[in-house]
Amino acid sequence: MKKIFLSCVSVILSCVIIFNFSTQEASAHHVKVTLDGMELKKGQIGSIYIKKSTKIYNYIDGKLVFYKTAKVKEKYRVYKVNEGTKTYSIGSKQYIKISDKNITYKKVPKSQYDKVNTVHDYAYRGTYWGDSISQVKKIVKSKLEGSDGDWLMYKTETFGYKSATHYFFEKNKLENVMVSFELEDGYYSLGNMRRIHDTLYPKLKKELNTRNEGFTNENGTSTTWNLKSRSVHLSIYDNKYYETKLGILYSPPEE
């Protein structure tokens, strides 16, 4: 089953014509990572753990001025180490002295830092490029019909058609999404293929949230959008067995 759909993906990819269009769609998110019970934030380089009550400062007119007391067992995020003032920046213009003996400073591991600060573009219906298999499984609520080490297939319904949605992974990172539709007949004339394309086109365009028309081929059977966060290709075509196939391929954006 997987091999069949991989061949369909190859066919659709061979039809894609690259065009540049702007888009209004949401484009990116950051992976949520928890370290020692506290969610890491973008730009966070470390954490401070309070062993004994200690002082938090503001920096006013070139001087550290007492602001409030940090209590035992509290945790603070660190965004910068200030060599000049010998302080840790903990956000909101607040500081803790590096020399403070009542704290423990722990640096965020590079692997965790990179996860939080790497931007992931939007892929398809709540998923993002680079999502792991386990992340996609948590997001997709449809019935899982098939899977292996780098592929998931869900039974879905898309734009009024019965369909199967395939998620393809490379090294446990989401690489492509293919929606394949179930057609009532095995073979359709060119006129009927155009009709099906024209029925799906406005629905897909609306879901993509773009004002751009995309690029439609001369047969009127496929349209490609190259958007900010993804390339999208709607296509209805005949395979070598004279069977009509209908699918939408979502791929990472063209560079």
Rank of each mutant, 00 (worst) to 15 (best):
Y250D: 08
E83V: 10
K228M: 10
T87E: 09
R230M: 04
E74Y: 07
E243H: 09
K143L: 10
K71S: 14
S231D: 11
D150K: 04
K2L: 13
K115E: 14
L190P: 05
A26Y: 10
K86V: 10
T54C: 15
V33Q: 08
S134Y: 12
D185T: 12
R195F: 10
E145P: 00
N102W: 11
D238A: 10
Q24D: 15
R125F: 06
W129P: 06
Y237W: 15
M178V: 03
G126P: 07
G91L: 01
T199P: 04
V31I: 14
T23Q: 11
A164Y: 08
V78K: 06
T158N: 13
S251I: 02
L246S: 00
F169Y: 04
Y49R: 12
E255Q: 13
L208Y: 08
D114N: 07
G84S: 09
T34Q: 10
V78R: 05
S22L: 07
G43E: 11
E243G: 03
Y167N: 01
V65W: 11
T34V: 15
L208R: 10
F181K: 03
Y250W: 09
K32Y: 00
K71A: 13
F215E: 07
T85W: 05
T118L: 15
K141V: 08
V16H: 07
N217R: 09
S111C: 09
L6Q: 14
I98Q: 15
S14K: 11
H29E: 03
W129I: 02
N176C: 04
N82K: 12
K75A: 05
K41H: 09
H29I: 00
L204Q: 03
K63N: 15
T244V: 08
Y122T: 00
E25H: 05
D238G: 01
S22A: 11
W151H: 08
D148C: 06
N117P: 05
R230I: 02
F169A: 01
K141A: 08
V9F: 08
K51V: 13
V16E: 10
S142Y: 12
I12S: 00
Y95K: 07
I248H: 00
V140A: 00
K240T: 11
L64Q: 07
I248T: 05
Y79Q: 13
G220C: 05
E175P: 04
T87N: 08
I48K: 02
N219A: 12
W151K: 07
F19T: 14
I17G: 05
I98C: 07
Q112N: 14
V65K: 12
V78T: 03
C8V: 15
E255C: 10
R77M: 10
V9P: 04
I96S: 02
N58G: 09
G160D: 04
G46D: 07
T156M: 08
R125P: 02
